[in-house]
Design a binder for these strands. Structure first.
Lengths: 234, 234
DNA sequence: ACCTGAACACCGTTCAAGT
DNA sequence: ACCTGAACACCGTTCAAGT
């Protein structure tokens, strides 16, 4: 088995299945993260899966931080590439946001890393895409920066929440059961101290995360629409 | 030294300095987190600081997760208590948001834990306070839930960013140097790929995080103002 | 150049043993 | 009831030694 990975010197054949490359490492790391969550990704587990030693991984990837950034960039780039150009800038912003939401929904660990490492290339891609749409919306120059930041921060906030919810082992990953239990515990809170929480507890079961996420985006877009000469489509 | 911590049986004297209590543990943990960051808090370091064994800590605090939740709740509660009631609901929302911003600025690790554990009591406090102001603003009932969620998610997003920035060791914690270096590297990006990033790079040095944070809150409040019968003050 | 895997310096948590 | 601290089962990372 191990001897199969030997290859003649010179330009290495990168298509060879057994060859250890950064790309193969990142792909395996993503599989591990998806299967076992953030705690499932260790250099030992990764080495085992790739039938190699932990030192070999460190030859291609400096440290765990770099590994997580690479996996995150991979997922975000794929999600961004999937977003098509739209005629209405506000629609494209919605698509970008939803694309990220869905990507993070499928890979919750991305949400955690994205909010921990905001200066990575993944963030730049998101920022760029949103910023260009704000330009197209003719948001005033000075406002574009903070408008983009507001949108990105909101997305990151939701991303972190989703990651946390996915990580939460309560009720064995049964989302409906989790929401029902949360709603029940909220309903038992002191009415004096927590009137609002008790009120929204009723809306919690069966509420649509994705729709709620988009409603927040629309709220910010509506606010942005008030800034400039041209309104965000409403 | 050790013998000083002995006390007679029965109701323990909780004012005794040497006595190990959950409160004292949490307080010491906060000091450790503030001084050395998230990686600085270990049960070993904490035990040493309190001149005890790690097992003693686990007697009072189940695990690290609970310890972090307790420290976070401590800081958030203090910040919320500092916010005064305001006549205009939108102003109170701004004060709540700024209070959180400042608390997280002073204790960046709070931002990280808050976005990782959104179902803790700290979050409930924030949610409650913001929700009541939305009621006062006469935001339609059905919209209150997602309006509050949007605000909270935005705050969490910024919180995570701040935690990440504070954690970033680049330029030895010199924020101005960090911003200048980031702006410089952004200016060198491909103009075809990153026109927007290059544009905002100019605005990056010397920009005011707190002001930008508040601008985002105002954007969301403006959007909320369009929802209901009564407008958020603008 | 690339890989191996033992070794190092850590973790959180448990638990028999003490007081 | 509360505390001690060694022991256990892990980590990420390094590095001499191999090919």
């Amino acid at each position: 088995m191990r001897s199969m990975t030997r290859h003649k010197p010179g330009r290495p054949d990168r298509r060879r299945a057994g060859l250890l490359t950064r790309e193969r490492i990142v792909r395996a790391a993503i599989e591990l993260l998806d299967a076992d969550g953030e705690t499932g990704l260790t250099f030992r587990a990764l080495a085992k899966r790739l039938s190699t030693g932990s030192g070999a991984l460190h030859w291609h990837v400096a440290d765990k931080h770099e590994l997580l950034s690479a996996t995150t960039a991979d997922v975000v780039t794929a999600a961004m590439d999937r977003v098509r150009d739209r005629a209405a800038p506000a629609d494209e912003i919605r698509d970008v946001a939803l694309g990220l939401f869905d990507a993070i929904d499928a890979h919750p660990w991305v949400g955690a890393h994205l909010s921990r490492e905001p200066w990575q290339s993944a963030m730049l891609q998101i920022f760029e895409r949103i910023g260009m749409q704000l330009r197209a919306l003719e948001v005033p120059d000075k406002a574009q920066f903070f408008a983009a930041t507001a949108l990105v921060n909101y997305v990151l906030g939701v991303a972190g929440q989703n990651a946390a919810t996915a990580r939460n082992p309560a009720h064995g990953g049964d989302r409906d059961a989790f929401l029902a239990a949360t709603a029940a515990s909220w309903s038992e809170l002191d009415p004096e101290m927590h009137p609002f929480i008790r009120q929204i507890a009723k809306q919690l079961p069966g509420h649509d995360d994705r729709k709620q996420f988009l409603a927040g985006i629309d709220l910010i877009l509506a606010g942005i629409g008030l800034l400039g000469p041209r309104r965000a489509r409403r």
